[in-house]
Simulated assay, not measured.
Amino acid sequence: MQNRITNLFQINYPIIQAGMIWASGWRLASAVANAGGLGIIGAGSMYPEVLREHIQKCKHATDKPFGVNIPMLYPDIDKLMKIIVDEGVRIVFTSAGNPKTYTAFLKENGITVVHVVSSVKFALKAQEAGVDAVVAEGFEAGGHNGREETTTFTLIPMVKEQIKIPLIAAGGIATGSGMLAAMVLGADAVQVGSRFVASEEASSHSKFKELVVAAKEGDTKLTLKELAPVRMLKNKFFRDVESLYQKGPSVNELKALLGRARAKRGMFEGDLDEGELEIGQISGLIHDIKPAAQIIEDMMIEFFAAKERIAEF
């Protein structure tokens, strides 16, 4: 299956695994790459030398293309960028910041650059900055989200109408049918996060994976908008946040409750009560934990089956 995204990344299927913190290490990235998608190492939860280790292990585990996701808010971003260049990474996804900051530097080093956006405004800014493609991520997505609260199937056609570069849809996509729907609306590919959290190769804690599988409609909510909007499962920590909101808290009071390493505590260490459990709304449609290769195969089978059903109309 070939289109602008598969040609850009030299992959078989237009499926990109999201670079999720505490889930997207070298095992998941290499498994997705070997299955024909684009695997992504999530650098947001890694110290520089840990990222180097994951890149090197990924290179040994696959000879297929893979990339690295870097949140622009990372404190040691200069060190991460140097490691990426030194290790010969060919694809970088940037997020949570201004794409102008590093796009030129990355492209000068022969790296394909993709930026994650949550609005038409930022998609246009990313295109102007010279990125090769954008990921337009809707309100349904897990983890840190845009403030616009635009849903994926509203955002994709609006972004498509305004940009010329390839477009990747993200947020609420975990099935082949969802993939087809996004592409009908103008996406060239999809970025999948939550479904790959519930994979055997994800580095997230097994207790967290099991909670994702058990999630139902309405079990996630976007909160902490005053800090950085984040969608998470409703657990004790989430209820503590909601209780604090009843008192009209200051930003400092919210920061104090959040503390440090809250996401690591929940998603990586398995503290389901006090941890921040980031996951998307689509978790209500995820019912099992599978190998990453099986997830991709199932998505492609469903994609073509859905395409045949549409043809009957």
Rank of each mutant, 00 (worst) to 15 (best):
F237P: 13
E297Q: 15
A305T: 13
A263G: 11
D188H: 02
E312T: 15
G275K: 07
F105V: 08
F208Q: 01
V134M: 04
L254I: 13
M183N: 08
V92A: 07
N98F: 15
A126T: 04
I173N: 04
G270P: 11
L51C: 04
T223S: 07
A104R: 09
V120I: 13
I282P: 03
N34K: 13
S45I: 06
D63R: 14
L257S: 10
V213R: 07
G97T: 11
G172S: 12
G193R: 01
I84K: 00
I173V: 11
S206R: 11
Y74P: 03
L244R: 11
G37L: 08
V32N: 01
T150F: 06
G44A: 14
M232H: 07
Q17A: 02
Q10W: 03
A263T: 10
A169N: 03
S177L: 11
K79P: 01
E161V: 13
I168S: 01
K57Q: 06
I163D: 02
K247G: 12
I40D: 02
G193A: 10
D240S: 14
Q2Y: 11
V89S: 01
A133T: 03
E278I: 10
K221M: 09
I286K: 02
A215G: 09
I21Y: 00
I286Y: 06
I295L: 09
P48A: 08
A174E: 04
A126G: 03
G142D: 04
G97K: 08
A182K: 02
I91N: 02
R195P: 03
I295H: 05
R309M: 12
S95F: 05
E108N: 10
K160R: 12
N3I: 13
P249F: 12
V114N: 00
L80T: 05
E140Q: 15
R239I: 13
A311W: 08
V116W: 00
E210Q: 14
I282E: 07
A187R: 00
P166V: 02
T220K: 05
K234Y: 10
I286E: 03
S118C: 11
E274M: 15
Q2E: 15
V251G: 07
K79L: 13
I11Q: 03
M1W: 12
D132P: 02
L211M: 09
A61H: 06
M81N: 07
W22K: 07
G146E: 02
V113P: 00
D78I: 15
A261Q: 12
S203A: 11
T94F: 05
I77L: 11
